[in-house]
């Protein structure tokens, strides 16, 4: 078990290294571009060369990579071209905002989809199951930007009970969080629900559930003690991996609602070629994704006695 955890962590570090190398190659391979981006298209050749000289861009590429990586590890991501401040200063508050958004979304998605999934999977083929399954297909078919439009049309335009943007310019406002969370949750819950349902339905067909019923256990005990324990292993993994998807979703939602989060920052940076911000954002996103993946793997192993004790 210990070895397994260590090995997973090793893989995680390795993945991060490869990702950093990819990013470095993609964005910084040609110093000329970097300088153009930093100094703007109207800078002179001379200015650019001076800047490159000053920032060590004429050193061999591997030296540059390692220096860049070293800076990254200690949290020095360079300066934002647009905001003219160290990237960290922009990034951390944005990340915190996105964290709030993501947590709130998970807070809705996890209970709702687990409950619906278990209910649907418990009696496969029942009307309840069909209803839940089809509605989860329908909601996952509506892209976030579309549901953002639809939901704001209803809640902002028709009913006028919720604000249409979530800039939070006057401090934190719970009301402004509702629509973004709703949009993310509507899109995400369907997948988790369906995976939970599939897992539950599969467990309900296993022979050990039959054994439990034929032992004469009450139905509730069969579900609570025998089925859930096994059926919830898969959804756990799915939820952890869902965080990766959520990071995609926040880009759209934050952009739409002008929410000052990490996704919007990445998008702005990309549109404005703010390369040091892009690099930092990408690394952070990948880190979150890889870390949750690792937790998912380790958790899966832990929850599964067949693997845990072998």
């Amino acid at each position: 078990m210990m070895i397994f955890v260590l090995r997973r962590c090793g893989t995680m570090v390795l993945t991060m290294l490869v990702v950093s190398l990819l990013l470095f190659l993609l964005l910084e391979i040609s110093p000329g571009n970097v300088a153009t981006k930093v100094l703007g298209p109207y800078s002179s050749e001379e200015q650019r060369n001076l800047w490159l000289e000053a920032h060590g861009y004429f050193d061999p590429i591997y030296e540059r990579y390692f220096r860049w990586l070293g800076n990254f590890v200690i949290g020095d991501f360079g300066d934002s071209i647009r905001f003219k401040v160290p990237v960290g200063e922009v990034l951390w508050p944005r990340l915190a905002n996105t964290g709030i958004l993501a947590l709130a979304t998970l807070g809705v998605v996890v209970p709702v989809s687990l409950i619906l999934g278990v209910l649907a999977g418990m009696r496969e083929g029942s009307t309840l199951d069909r209803t839940i399954s089809v509605s989860s297909i329908v909601t996952t078919s509506v892209p976030e930007f579309a549901s953002a439009v639809l939901l704001s049309a209803v809640f902002v335009f028709l009913l006028d009970i919720l604000p249409g943007t979530s800039g939070m310019s006057e401090g934190f406002d719970l009301k402004q969080l509702i629509l973004p969370v709703m949009v993310l949750a509507v899109y995400d819950f369907g997948y988790v629900t369906r995976m939970t349902r599939a897992s539950m339905a599969e467990v309900m067909l296993t022979h050990y559930i039959r054994t439990a019923v034929l032992k004469g256990l009450p139905y509730k005990t069969v579900i609570a003690r025998h089925a859930l324990r096994n059926a919830l292993i898969t959804p756990f993994t799915v939820i952890m991996l869902q965080i990766n998807w959520l990071l995609s979703g926040v880009i759209v939602v934050e952009y739409y609602f002008a929410y000052k989060g990490f996704g919007a920052l990445l998008l702005e940076a990309s549109l404005n070629s703010d390369i040091f911000v892009i690099e930092a954002c990408a690394m952070v996103a990948v880190f979150v994704a890889v870390a949750t993946q690792t937790i998912a793997d380790v958790g899966y192993t832990y929850l599964n006695p067949r693997i845990r004790f072998s």
Partner: peptide, 24 residues
């Protein structure tokens, strides 16, 4: 029925591994 099952009528199955709950 529940009171009969496992108490008065009990069953042994073909595949013991599948008949036992793996995580208990």
């Amino acid at each position: 029925l529940r009171q009969l099952r496992g108490n008065e009528i009990a069953m042994v199955y073909q595949e013991p591994m599948a008949a036992l709950n793996p995580s208990m």
